[in-house]
Design a protein around this nucleic acid. Structure first.
Length: 551
RNA sequence: GGUCUGUUGGUGAAGUGGUUAAACACGCGCGCCUCUCAAGCUCGUAUACACGGGUUCGAACCCCGUACAGACUACCA
């Protein structure tokens, strides 16, 4: 039996060769330093923060070099697959503005000339590559059962030897074609393993773009390349796909770092140029028992949807991810307020080689600053989008009072140092409910005045509305407040009061607070003048009456 | 067990042999400002470069060892 016949027996029905495929996947026509990256998740559920982080870096690198970023679905493990997994990944990416240039765009469609981009649809391609290996005596069938493999492992463990299928443990490494044929004729199941040419004692160096130069032992494991269901393992699919799709930079989690010897060996066996690797450390979470990897299962904040549910703007999350990736981004962004994320040049060498703690409070701070720079219309739109899904009551009010709502969002917004109290859209109602009568009059309210004398409070409210009410300019208004204070025996200035507390009933701050509480039932609100200005005299009067009733 | 990687303050980190008596940002705290809050501004967060050796005139930065943390060691990715 020739090697060719042998290969045909092991992997029947494959008529294309490696050369055929190379022709079908020509070199990409790109600028010299263009980077081609990909995001290659398994459809096992929602995208988590770590995945989004890697995808963000990948897309950014491709974009800033006029390269290509594509989405490939690695569904070679049919057991782990989750229903609608692909759709979930696509929407998560879309929501976070990680736009793809080619790849899978929906459960049923793909775009780009280097597909298919779903691995289960590429079975023949992998098998053609595996056949090449068999023909060249670089791969062989392995008939080991699960039990046999388990036995080998136990033996290695008890003898404190390195685990794995290699050297003397590689039972079928030298199986003859005839023996193999016999087993196959007997109906025995097999998989295809690489006949590794490596020696574990040998070392080789490679340069990881984020971790730096790393020395690793050469791979001597006869890893499986084609599983019993005919699909490839990750390692083999990586070789085939990233070669054919001409990926220049593989950006992935550092759990892959120790597989690099396998990958480079595979590439060199085929005589292919290996891509550059950037292994990024996982995002961490701080817990009582120290830090650990942010977990998809244990940590709600690991889910990308967590942030949409809180109403943290997508841009803020992206801004945060960028500062985690390159910490110099924050300073740059601060210096270049007119620029955007796209103008920033991300660098591999500045990515931390150890895991960063995923810090939600920092994210919130970034979000708060981001929102403070938006226009009232932008905030309104974000609020509308958020409440539409998560707060119908608020949504209806925003729709009903569009221009009024925008004015509410505009309070203390257009000034050198805009107000910063909103970091997520889920706080919209909590921060603004009192501006809407529909909410105000249905909520239970607690009025806490700086003055206990009810009669006095009533006097202040009545005197204000009857004699000192003015909506002109903020300065005018505040002057009136001072006049009002003076008339009722309160100090015009706080300082004045502090100097001679005995000469006054209180100060202008107390007067303001009485008005604030009567108007909003709150002790802490944004600028009182702006609130009154927005409400208008009638509503103010009505609220005062309500407050007096509740004295 | 083997093979790797990492370890600067509460957090993210800058800094890769000598103006860093360790920047900057977040968080927290005092104070100032202010009609309240948010913001802004001062200052602070007691001994922050894991530990022990070595190289050097000089080390957070180079080397070795130890500890701790993490990864991989699947017909999972």
């Amino acid at each position: 039996m020739t090697n060719k016949e042998y290969a045909n027996m092991l992997l029947p029905g494959i008529d294309k060769t490696v050369e055929d495929y190379e022709k079908m996947y020509p070199i990409r026509d790109l600028k010299e330093n263009a980077i081609v990256t990909r995001f290659a998740p398994s459809p096992t559920g929602f995208v988590h923060m770590g995945g989004l982080f890697a995808a963000f870096i990948s897309r950014k690198m491709a974009k800033q070099t006029d390269g290509v970023f594509f989405l490939r679905i690695e569904d070679t493990d049919k057991k782990r697959e989750v229903e609608h997994g692909i759709e979930g990944i696509i929407t998560d990416l879309k929501n976070f503005q990680i736009n793809i240039d080619e790849g899978v765009i929906s459960q049923s469609s793909q775009m780009g000339n280097y597909g298919p981009y779903i691995q289960s649809e590429r079975k023949d391609v992998y098998q053609a590559f595996a056949k090449y290996l068999i023909e060249n005596d670089l791969a062989y069938p392995c008939f080991c059962t699960e039990e046999e493999l388990e036995e080998i492992r136990k033996k290695q463990e008890s003898q404190k030897e390195r685990l794995g299928y290699y050297g003397k443990y590689a039972k079928y490494r030298n199986i003859t074609k005839e023996e193999a044929k016999e087993k196959i004729d007997n109906g025995e199941k097999y998989i295809i393993r690489l006949k590794s040419p490596g020696n574990f004692e040998d070392k080789f160096k490679f340069k990881d773009l984020v971790k730096g130069v790393i020395e690793l032992p050469v791979n001597d494991l006869d890893i499986v390349i084609i599983k019993s269901d005919g699909l490839p393992t990750y390692h083999f699919a990586h070789l085939v796909d990233d070669h054919l799709m001409h990926t220049t930079h593989v950006i992935r989690g550092d759990e892959w770092l120790s597989s690099v010897p396998i990958h480079t060996q595979l590439f060199s066996i085929f005589g292919f140029k290996a891509p550059k690797y950037a292994h990024i450390a996982p995002l961490m979470k701080d817990t009582e028992n120290g830090r650990r990897k942010l977990s998809k299962r244990k940590d709600p904040e690991a889910a990308v949807s967590y942030y949409t549910e809180l109403g943290i703007p997508v841009e803020a999350v992206l801004l945060y991810l960028c500062t985690v990736a390159n910490s110099n981004f924050e300073g740059w962004y601060d210096q270049n307020k007119d620029k955007t994320l796209d103008d920033f040049k991300l660098e591999f060498s500045k990515i931390s080689s150890s895991g960063s703690l995923f810090d939600v409070s920092k994210l919130l701070n970034i979000s708060k600053n981001y929102i403070s720079r938006l226009t009232k219309d932008e905030v309104y739109n974000l609020a509308l989008e958020y409440t539409k899904n998560y707060d119908k009551e608020m949504y209806d009010l925003l729709v009903k009072y569009e221009s009024y709502s925008k004015s509410v969002f505009n309070i203390e917004r257009v000034q050198k140092k805009p107000r910063k109290d909103l970091s997520m859209m889920s706080e919209i109602k909590k921060l603004n409910w009192y501006m809407y009568d529909e909410l105000y009059y249905t909520y239970d309210k607690k009025y806490i005045y700086p003055i206990t004398d009810k009669k006095e409070i009533e006097t202040i409210l009545n005197t204000y509305i009857n004699e000192f009410y003015i909506i002109d300019s903020k300065d005018e208004w505040f002057n009136k407040m001072k006049d009002l204070s003076e008339k009722l025996g309160y100090a015009r200035e706080v300082k004045e009061f502090k100097e001679m507390p005995a000469s006054f009933k209180g100060h202008v701050g107390d007067i303001s607070m009485v008005l604030r509480v009567a108007l909003t039932s709150l002790n802490e609100t944004p600028d009182l003048y702006e609130i009154m200005n927005l409400m208008g005299k009638e509503r103010i009067l009505k609220r005062f009456e309500d407050a007096i009733k509740n004295l």
